[in-house]
């Protein structure tokens, strides 16, 4: 994990039977960040920008290599409920949330179960809803390096791509595999989506929601963005051109601008 200027720290919080490891940085009102299926990628430009006005709170998903796996957990909805408990027991809710890909799905499940735990919600290319057209890329049929490559539109023009996750070491490969293995346990079938989610998301109508998508997303087709917008009354969809599944690094400046404007003070 790239450590930036060491402007983040880790703490461990007891939730149920788990010692949940949480990365925290910045100052101000808390902003929950739910990382994607490859694990927490490090402290990137957008973390640094948003940390100016917010305390960024990144729980490291159980079983993704750092926080121990919780063997009872069988679905993304289980993980979402686990985080709801974490928020309640630590008096963090209501708070703002950003979820990326798998993390976006977790956030959506949390909103579907209890939208009042969030103040504002940003979903970045979330999995979770079956795209009306196209399929979610089966990343389990790719080795981790190919999975990572598929997630951006053009690695060569993505400045932070090379520092993502800290390079191609055996340790990094192993960390990817930990994350991918737990993702498989939670999202193997139905693959990366929950057929009941669109129906349950109606309860989140009115929750200020920003949906962000890259138009060239090769992992979760952009049609799922429309489905999300339709499911959450009042949600707004923002798309970036020449951008894949990682707008936060591919269109970092634009992403930061949108996020700051949406979250406010």
């Amino acid at each position: 994990m790239a450590d930036g200027a060491k402007d983040w720290r880790e703490e461990t919080v007891r939730v149920d039977d788990s010692d949940l490891i949480v990365v925290k940085g910045g100052a101000g009102k808390p902003l929950l960040v739910l990382h994607d299926e490859l694990g927490q990628p490090g402290w990137l430009k957008w973390h640094r920008a948003l940390a100016q006005r917010r305390t960024i709170v990144i729980p490291l998903h159980p079983g993704f290599g750092r926080t121990d796996r919780a063997e009872w957990m069988l679905s993304i909805r289980d993980l979402a409920s686990f985080y709801s408990r974490y928020l309640k027991e630590n008096a963090l809710a209501p708070l703002d949330v950003i979820g990326f890909s798998l993390g976006g799905w977790i956030a959506a499940e949390m909103a579907a179960s209890n939208p009042t735990q969030f103040r504002r919600m940003i979903l970045v290319a979330p999995a979770g809803i079956r795209p009306p057209s196209g399929d979610i890329l089966d990343v389990f049929q790719l080795m981790a390096p190919q999975h990572l490559m598929a997630s951006v539109f053009n690695p060569a023009t993505t400045p932070e791509f090379s520092e993502l996750y800290g390079g191609a070491s055996p340790e990094q490969f192993e960390a990817f595999e930990d994350a991918r293995a737990q993702t498989a346990r939670l999202a193997w079938t139905p693959y990366m989506h929950n057929p009941t989610l669109p129906h349950l998301l109606g309860v989140a109508a009115g929750l200020p929601t920003l949906i962000v998508w890259g138009r060239q997303d090769a992992v979760v087709p952009m049609s799922a963005g429309d489905a999300y917008r339709n499911a959450i009354g009042g949600a707004r969809l923002v798309t970036f051109d020449n951008c894949g599944h990682r707008p936060e690094i591919e269109k970092s400046a634009e992403f930061i601008r949108e996020a700051e404007a949406f979250l406010g003070d």
């Binding site: 055996p170 490969f173 192993e174 595999e177 930990d178 293995a181 993702t183």
Partner: peptide
């Protein structure tokens, strides 16, 4: 993903 034990994954990690 998840098919191999932790030890076997470590061996694959070195390979790749």
């Amino acid at each position: 993903p998840g098919y191999n034990s932790k030890d076997a994954t470590r061996r694959v990690a070195r390979q790749f």
